[in-house]
Design a binder for these strands. Structure first.
Lengths: 128, 128, 128, 128
DNA sequence: GTGGTCTAGACCACT
DNA sequence: GTGGTCTAGACCACC
């Protein structure tokens, strides 16, 4: 079950997006699988359906899922040719750069950073 | 000279904070050195002095600089005893976790991530 | 109701911060409880919303409350792990030192000081 | 020799006031003793004479010293009948109250507070 | 409705 | 001239 923190600084719909992406990565949600409907997920998480709707729309924009009128929303394949755009990469790198300034400022050693990444990578990718 | 993008998702005052932190890390701004005054920096960047003020105040909260009424704002020493708190570390790790989900989703290989970090580390820490 | 004195040497936004901290300590505001919105509190106290906003932001920095866009501001739990840092303690002690010089100069006996502290402690901590 | 910290949030003239009061309390400066002249003290501390002047004027207002034209400034007796006014006491108590809110919030135990006071009292009063 | 950011312009305290 | 506070009013993102 998805974990949401209403007191998180990140808006709820972004938390949902992140969670679903994570489940796809981890193979909990498989390509072609049907996602819960907007209304049922909203009920399960006891939040506003509009918020779920916004998350699903954004996931469709990012080509993670596909919504079919009258049928539901489904996980898309991660197509290898859907390789990241130059823009995506630039954005990611920029975000990393900003994070590193903070980390360096707080004197986190490089070794620790590598360790954190390895821990997380194992969880997300387990075998990919 | 500092580069600001008013259309960036990050608010201007945070861009300023990041820029100054980076300059401190890189040794462009040295401990004790005087920062440009609120008003002159505002004029140089053609933004409102209050925005600069907000950035400087936050930098003072984070103990990066110190502002003295009537005198100006100055870079503080990075005291080794000012080690990061448990909460700081938790926050950093959480941010990293979210970034990694994105990166994995876009299929950035671990190797590339390490490379990006090394590049940036060299720029920020040059030998530390 | 909160009491504010515009002619106080302490800025208004700091008076608000102190008041809210006190109410949290005294259990008037409970963890998770919603604070009045920036706008309504501003109207109630007949001051500018930006001033409230400044106070709330600082309270969020100090991890007393948490503000969520579109939802409101809420009292956080005081986590026992969020122990004070060395710097916090240093700052507190320095402030106390300066206060004591004044008190000694005005010949307040130690006994009276202890009495004042006990009175206040009872109000703030009521049994903790 | 007096210790001044130009990077302290407290204005320099207040630091001077506090220092002189402390020296009077500790018996380093005795009643009737001549203080250094504005100009020589300014030179010794390498700060602006106006700042010293402001401090001395305030000390005269608070009846700690007395300035005689053409002769210099001198430490006054702490006269027992110069007992603190009701106003002074109210102000002191108010300041203490605010400090205690912070201390309680940061979970400093009462015992620790007493300890801090005792340490400081010994330094300031040594035998009074 | 909520909080967050930014501008414009004012006044104050300190050096 | 310096930073700090406050007001007034605007626009944005989120729920």
């Amino acid at each position: 079950m998805m974990h949401l923190d209403p007191n998180h600084p990140k808006p709820i719909y972004e938390q949902i997006i992140l969670n679903i992406k994570k489940e796809v990565l981890q193979g909990i949600l498989l390509p072609g699988e049907k996602l819960p409907s907007v209304r049922t997920l909203a009920k399960d998480l006891s939040i506003n359906p509009n918020t779920i709707s916004k998350a699903y729309k954004e996931l469709e924009n990012q080509e993670v899922i596909i919504s079919v009128k009258g049928k539901g929303s489904f996980v898309r394949n991660i197509e290898p040719e859907n390789t990241r755009s130059v823009q995506d990469e630039k954005k990611l790198k920029q975000q990393l750069r900003e994070w590193l300034v903070e980390a360096h400022y707080l004197q986190v050693p490089l070794k620790t950073i590598y360790q954190w990444i390895d821990e997380e990578a194992q969880e997300n990718l387990h075998g990919n």
